[in-house]
Design a protein around this nucleic acid. Sequence first.
DNA 1: CCATCTCCGACCTCGCTGGTAGGATTGAAG
DNA 2: CTTCAATCCTACCAGCGAGGTCGGAGATGG
Lengths: 173, 173
Amino acid sequence: MIFTTKAEYGVRLLVELGRHGAEQGEAAGAGAVLSLKAIAAAEGLPLAYLERIVALLKKADLVESTRGAHGGYRLKRDPATISMDEVIVALEGAVAPMTCFVDDTDSPRVLCSHESDSGHGCATKLLWMRVQGGVMEKLSQTTLAELVAFATRETAPVRGAAHTGAPLTIAAG
Amino acid sequence: MIFTTKAEYGVRLLVELGRHGAEQGEAAGAGAVLSLKAIAAAEGLPLAYLERIVALLKKADLVESTRGAHGGYRLKRDPATISMDEVIVALEGAVAPMTCFVDDTDSPRVLCSHESDSGHGCATKLLWMRVQGGVMEKLSQTTLAELVAFATRETAPVRGAAHTGAPLTIAAG
DNA sequence: CCATCTCCGACCTCGCTGGTAGGATTGAAG
DNA sequence: CTTCAATCCTACCAGCGAGGTCGGAGATGG
């Protein structure tokens, strides 16, 4: 499995924020505040667990919070400017294909513990690099706005029409 | 982490088989038989664990075995015709980005357990599909022969700035 | 003051990864 | 025909991280 539920829940949380943020049309695409309780209820996710997840998003400056009664969370930037690589890194840490991979974001170095094992380096390094590249590419190409649009389309194919259970056709096959 | 050590060790095993298979120049690119003991020693991997891993490769018809004294393993096909997606699937099972993803290789269906949770489907599905696509793409584009060449080149740096073949642009060190 | 919400850290359970142990079976060499 | 080296097979185990819970402390509007 590539991602854990941290990524899953975190992204769904952001999408929920994006969906309800659009309704307001406030300044800088930030949107309305949503309480975690509301999100947890809407998505059917454990509240206590979500708290820990949203903390990661806040630390990454993707989300900002308002404390106290009627508080909650809102996106800090416009959904169209939030790419998933940021999000996933915030939630999961770096995406490494293998335990021996430590990708320093500063320098493009890739460390492999087996490096000097037996004369020749890891044969697998080339493969893991490509895979990681493929993942990061897809992540950075996908924005939160896209996911919001995708989710909203499924709920309400036509704007304003509440709809149940739409046919889900992914653009793959 | 995307892959476990099963993939790592399995690929290294295949590469080792490919490296020594080329020396022989036997029929149909099969190569010589190598004992697991030799491979384990060469790569510094636990023998007993390798046994279980190579069993997966054998079940997937990527490798064939000779029992008894002086027995061992050899590639069943030419390294150039073995793509990594086969290998990884054999070793890790299917590569799914998320637990709720079950990709039936026959029908291009993608199941998501959260499908009917709350009216709208997983917003994350689009993202996971893309990521999985990226991974599978990279895997299927990489052949065992490439990895063998990559590994061999590191051991014995063959002269020639223009190494014929794939873009081996590893940004290391 | 009180309900509501964010914030924070400790705690727990469970399944899987990574690895070991011990043996049975096969087959070539002496 | 014994012996040794190899594949094969099943069971077992320790550690760890994922996934989630609990309880409480600090803000804040009504």
